[in-house]
Every structure is written in C-alpha cells, then in structure tokens.
Design a protein around this nucleic acid. Sequence first.
DNA 1: CTGTTAGCGCGTTCAC
DNA 2: GTGAACGCGCTAACAG
Lengths: 336, 336
Amino acid sequence: MSTAQVTIKDLARQLNISVSTVSRALRNAPDINPGTKNAVLKLAAELSYEPNVMAQGLVKKKTKIIGVVVPAIHSNYFSDALSGMTEVANAYDYHLMFCQSNEDAGQEIRSIKKLLACHVDGLLISVSKDTKNTAEFEKVKQLGVPVVMFDRTLPDFTCSKVIVDEYEGAFKAVEHLIRKGCKRIAHLAGPVNASVSANRMKGYIDALAKYGLPVNDKLILRCNAFEEDALPAIKKIIASRPMPDGIFFINDLSAISAIQYMQKKGINVPGDIKVAGFNDDPVSAVIQPSLTTVMQPSYEVGKLAIGILIDAILKPESPEQTISLRTKLVIRDSTK
Amino acid sequence: MSTAQVTIKDLARQLNISVSTVSRALRNAPDINPGTKNAVLKLAAELSYEPNVMAQGLVKKKTKIIGVVVPAIHSNYFSDALSGMTEVANAYDYHLMFCQSNEDAGQEIRSIKKLLACHVDGLLISVSKDTKNTAEFEKVKQLGVPVVMFDRTLPDFTCSKVIVDEYEGAFKAVEHLIRKGCKRIAHLAGPVNASVSANRMKGYIDALAKYGLPVNDKLILRCNAFEEDALPAIKKIIASRPMPDGIFFINDLSAISAIQYMQKKGINVPGDIKVAGFNDDPVSAVIQPSLTTVMQPSYEVGKLAIGILIDAILKPESPEQTISLRTKLVIRDSTK
DNA sequence: CTGTTAGCGCGTTCAC
DNA sequence: GTGAACGCGCTAACAG
C-alpha cells in the first residue's frame, strides 16, 4: 500500500540535517560541504529519491512540461513529428503532454485550457483545419507561455513557426508532371481554411503559369477533410471533358483512392493520367503503380519545433522566428 | 509579460472573502451560501480562473495525470490505441503524458521514472520487445500507482491487462491458409521475448496440429525487430525445398516486403505461395495482391485499458482483471 | 455558513 | 556551511 515517495524530509531526518541543506545538496548549490553533499546524494540514490515535480513546479513556476496539440495522433505525419519531439524532450528533461483536437476548433480550445491548467511551460500546436480565431492563442501568449506552431499554422497569429515549404513542394510536383508531358493538370485541393491547402494550391498555380499553361477553375476541386470524402471530387475530376492528363493531389491517401478508382474504370495510370501526391505516406511506395509524391521531413519538424520552444522557455526574450524546411520530390511510377 | 494566472487568492481579495470560502464555492462543497457561491463562480468565469493542478495535486496527492509508455508512437497500432486513450481521458478529465521506449528496456525504465517523478496517478504500458525484468514494475505497484498493461504484456507481472487474442487470430489465419489448400505453411515469427510472438506462434502450431499437418522447425524463422530485418528470414523461407505453399507472417510489413521480393523473383502470390499477415495495416489493402490479415481492435484496446486504469485509480481495491479482445480475419487476394 | 490555521514538497531568503 | 522561517496555490480540519 502506497509506500509513499521519499521526500527531502525523509532524507533530512535520516541524516540528522535540515531540509534546506538536503535541498542545497540535491541541486548542487555553491555553498555546501562536499562531505555532507556526498552523504545526501548517496542516501538519495539508495532510497531512489525522485524530486516531486509538482512541488518544484509550484515554487519555481516551471513545470518542465510542454503541451502538444495536434489534429490527430494517428496520421503518419503527426505521429512522426511527435516522435521527434519526444526525443528532444528526453534529452532536455522535459515532459510532453499530448492532446488531440480531432480537427475541431472547439476541442482544440478545450485542450489548450487543460494544458494551461497544468501550467505547461510552453505550447506546441498544429492547428485544426477550421481554426480561425486567434483569441485563445493571444491569451496564452499574454500569460507568458511561449507558443510554437508547426506544420499547420495560423497566418494571423505571430509566434515562432516551423513549417515545410509546401509551396515549393507542390511547385516541384506539378513541374514534374508538366515535364512528363501533362498539359491539362487537375488539382484536388484540401480544406479551405488550412494554410497547407493554400500553399500547395499556389505552388500548383505558379507552376502552371511558369510553363504557360492556363489555370482552369473547373480542374480545381476541393475536399473538406484531409482523410476522407475525396472520392466525389475525384469522380468529378475524371468526368470532366476533355479528361485531364495529370492530377496533383493534396495528399497521398486521396491520390491512392483515385488510382484505385481509375483502375476500376479502366483508366491507365500513368498512361492516360499521371498522378502525384503529397506526404510520402508508406502506402505510396506499395501501391501499383507506386506513387510519385512530395516527402515532408516531419520528424525533423518535430525536433526543430520543440527545440525552438525550449529556447524560448529558457530565454523569454529570444526573438520569434519562422523556419521553413524543404521537401523532397520522390519520383515513382505514377508519373512515368 | 506574464500576466500571471489568476488564483483563488485574487478572487478572495476582490470579493472580500476568505480563500477557503472561494475554494468551497469552486468545488461546490455542501455548506456554502448559494449567493456567495454564485458571486465566486461569476467572477471566476469573468477572470477565466483555472485551478492550478500542480497545487491541487500537491495537497490531494492526485494529479489527474496518467502516464503512457509505448514502444513507438508512430506505428499504426499504437497511435490508434493512444487515440482511443485520449478520448476517454478527455471524458474523465484526465491528462495524458506519453513516453516512447523505442523498444529499449533501459529507455523504458527511464520513462517510468520520469512519469513517477511527475506523480502520475496511474500507468499504461505496452512493454518493449526486450523487457524481461519486472523489478521496476513491482516498484511502481509498491508506490501504490496502479498499472495496466496493454497489447504487449509481461507474463510474470501481475496487474490488469488488456490484450488481443493473438492466439485465436493466428489460429484463424493459418486455418484459413489450410482450407485454401496449403499443406506446407511457413511462419515468420517475431522477436523471441515478446508475448505476442509466442501467442501467434502457438496459434500457428495448433492450427497445423488440428489439421494433421506436421510442424517443421525449418519452416519457422525469426526476425529480431518488429519493423525491419525481415528480408533475410524471408529469403531463407523461400529458398527452402520443397518450397512452402503458404506463409503466415508476424505482421503486415514483413508480409509486404515478402510479397514484393517474391514478385521480383517471379513467384506468384497467391498462385505459388499464399500469404497472410497480422495487424490490418493500411498498406495491406493497397498492395497487389491485397493482403489477407488479422485485424486487431487497437482503438478499443486503448479505450478499455485506460477505462480499467481509471477504475483502479478511483477504487484502489478493485480486483485486477485481464480482458481479451477478439480479432477479425480480413480475407483478401493474397490467399485467393 | 464562514474565517482561521495548518500543511502538501520544495526553493529561497536571512540569520547564525 | 547550515538551519529556521516563509511562501508557491490549494484543500482540509477546526472553530466560531
């Protein structure tokens, strides 16, 4: 039954010294007798003393906890980023508290409140697809809690950001389609609000422009969620006449449903239509034809984001910065 | 700059009442004047007061934080389980702290220590593939911190467990191969220590036995990690003569590398060799031929595990239990 | 019904 | 060098 954690008090009693001396020994303060210090450390190790983070937090106003909010933990992209964060967090002795917004702005706000109640030292967030309001984030900032946004950011909110150069990634993908001979390239765009949707769309448009191809609104379709509901839009694209000879997709999962649908309809990929996706999801290497896609360094994004955040926590006056990581075009059979 | 969180003290001062009255109002204690209570609640809402969980934790000896340790956050299986946990945690107003062991027993112990230092109310864990020692877990238990193991459990350690009936899942898969005409079925087994490896192996052996097929040691190969290094073993299996006509894999990823390798070698799947995997990873629906596999209810596992843990936290004397969830055989083209 | 007191585990003065 | 006293934000016991 609850052999309660050992505290500095226990150490003090057993060594017949005061708690403040123990405290000093434990966080190697300057003025302390090396002898007593060693004695304390030895006993602490024996009893496997662990400082109570809550109590430390209460007095130091620092919890060593970092809050993380992502739209969905499952999702290759985010779980890789989280993985990168845990690595750095371990190295710096920070703890991570994860929340999931499920792409819902309301849930996102509730998560942030929960994290604030836990007095996290900082906040890492990738916003949901319909987050618009910056009010909650301003509040966090006002509380003196540094925020770093990663991947999905809020243009109207000023803070450090770690993003992927989605624009360039999209541009490269579409340029590749053009060089492979596509003249009528469609685009399945993502949810309206998401920053990533806009950036990829812009890359698509600019690539067309660079090669003198017209931007045809009828060839630009939208899906409202990142993971599903792409099929209706896909059907529309395929049905348009003249048929497109290339499609650039907002992500791999929708590209894959498209490929499967087209194969069922007897359309040859890449013969009739060439296809490019985004993310380099594991499935894109496995589907036949394998999918040309844009790889994002999600693990790196996670590591960088938490690194910047920890900097900001340790040096509150450090300037806000935006880091943009480059993507890599992975060329496979769907654009052969 | 740090417009510090508002505290009950602030509320008390503004209302000219004592902090204990405020405290009572906030957690609707029995004896409190409805009028003053309303006044407190109103002001609290206006100032968007949030209780400091660290302080509450310090006095109540409860943090409302649950620690979670998994081998790898990325990994479809675990991220789904984590997703299920966050849902329940939200509902019961618990916070989750995640750690990743990277399949390393040492890292796992360090994670547990960190979580204990944060005074988590309970621990959810899926052990790494080389965790053997139960000492650390016994310590956790002695501290009065309830533990629930899920998916990958430690047979020698007594605690509540939520597992998937891997044995039955493996049995069904192998039985299916047999019914499809396979007479010489190989098995790519998982790491030696992992409980899941043993369970799936047993299902394989018993299914063979039931149908009077011999168990041939030469047809049983091992891989040392869950995610890689399967290829050498796969090559060995394929090279054995007479060649097997069916293979049951420890997981989908190794099954898929095998299919790709066999296709390169001109071996027809399912014509020459039929293949079954485990997990129902998204890729298994996409590869051609699509992969017959055993689906595990990972999201449900997560939800159940945290549910049991919260029960144990709230009622420390509740009995330990082991819940086993059933798998579902997903039949696709690789066993046609 | 409400205020006072004490204490959770720890860090931080300030004397000694 | 070391100990005593105080406070972080909050709950709990006891008076009134």
